[in-house]
């Protein structure tokens, strides 16, 4: 058992890499908010909960491409805090006319999107944070 606070350093590093100002991570019963002021990343709010039962995981780009947080024909992205099943697409990578999915590696709750819609990403770029749901491993 671990909780999101164990990963603050790693999350902070992504935040700086991605040049994002704010990262909010919400699990079923925990919230973590990181603020990047350019120089350092600090936790401004962290709430621990004994019911958080699995480490959140990073879903990385399976290929280079243009990151899309929704299907090009869809108007809305997959909502944060939505429960996803293993294999469900969390987002897409576009390579010219080709469209590849970024599938959820296991069942869980999508807690964050780390890259803006339309960003060009490389192989392995962290894209999503997923809070796995215990007992529903793929």
């Amino acid at each position: 058992m671990s909780n999101p606070l164990d990963h603050v350093d790693q999350l902070g590093a992504w935040l700086k890499d991605a040049n994002l100002a704010l990262l909010e991570l919400r699990g079923p019963s925990a919230t973590l908010r990181l603020v990047n002021d350019g120089a350092s990343v600090r936790v401004v709010e962290g709430e621990e909960s004994p019911s958080v039962d699995a480490p959140s995981m990073t879903v990385r780009a399976p290929s280079p491409g243009i990151f899309l947080d929704r299907h090009p024909l869809h108007e809305r992205a997959i909502a944060l805090v939505a429960d996803v099943r293993a294999g469900d697409p969390l987002g897409f990578l576009q390579i010219g006319p080709l469209l590849l999915a970024v599938p959820a590696p296991r069942a869980g709750t999508l807690t964050d999107v780390l890259v803006a819609h339309g960003t060009i990403v490389g192989y392995g770029t962290p894209l999503f944070v997923l809070q796995p749901i215990e007992g529903e491993a793929s």
Binding site: P72, L73, P97, L98, L99, L100, A101
Partner: peptide, 11 residues
């Protein structure tokens, strides 16, 4: 299975 195309109407 498991991949797609971006509709040409968008491109």
């Amino acid at each position: 299975p498991g991949f797609g195309l971006v509709p040409p109407g968008l491109a």
